[in-house]
């Protein structure tokens, strides 16, 4: 399966409001009724902006129900669209803002990278993994990131090498490291197993 857990692998704490903040921006990209209920029934003081990435259909989302009256709710249907909405939100945000990111690791760490370009520090952002365990995988050979990887071995979308997906995670790149598994004996690639459902 995978290598031993490494120190760089993120451990996600239960998502809680940081009530020392005076403005709050929450990005969610997965349904989690219990979490939505817990967070939204006891909102923090100050403004709350919720950016919700969800499929464009008519279903009711747990995140759009029970919203506090004061919350600003913005919906996006693709990650690119969500990132544009968040870019605008960060652009006008003030010091005192706390950022909460809940969803797939691929999505939350891309938002995290965006926030860092606005000079946001780590004590201003909280992350929670929700939904898929799929990994973004950075190819250490060609530097392409292959997204949505469920298996422990994957073919790099950039160079086609068979990459072994490590637990070694880069916060800067927002991806796990993948390295060529058949470098010693070309062509000797074990069968891939689903490791990150």
């Amino acid at each position: 399966m995978s290598t031993l857990a490494t120190k760089s692998q993120p451990i996600y704490a239960e998502l809680e409001w940081d009530r020392t903040g005076t403005h709050h921006i929450l990005f969610v990209s997965a349904e989690d009724a219990a979490l939505a209920q817990r967070l939204l029934s006891n909102p923090p003081g100050g403004t709350l902006t919720l950016v919700h990435l969800r499929p464009a259909d008519d279903s009711r989302s747990v995140w759009s129900q029970n919203l506090p009256d004061t919350a600003l709710y913005l919906e996006a249907h693709t990650l690119a669209e969500a990132l544009e909405v968040l870019r605008d939100a960060f652009y006008v945000a003030q010091m005192g803002t706390r950022i909460y990111l809940a969803g797939s690791e691929d999505a939350i760490w891309q938002v995290s990278q965006l926030a860092e370009t606005f000079g946001v520090s780590r004590d201003e952002i909280r992350h929670a993994q929700l939904g898929t365990k799929a990994r973004p995988v950075f190819c250490v050979h060609c530097r392409t990131i292959t997204r949505g990887v469920h298996t422990n071995i994957v073919s790099c979308s950039g160079c086609g090498r068979s990459l072994f997906v490590r637990d070694h995670f880069s916060r800067r790149l927002g991806a796990y490291m993948g390295f060529q598994i058949d470098a010693e004996v070309p062509g000797e690639v074990p069968a891939a197993e689903v490791a990150y459902p």
Binding site: T20, T22, G46, M95, G96, T97, R98, S121, R122, E124
Partner: peptide, 8 residues
């Protein structure tokens, strides 16, 4: 009081 984190 304005919510600035310690890191800033």
């Amino acid at each position: 009081a304005l919510g600035w984190p310690e890191s800033h």
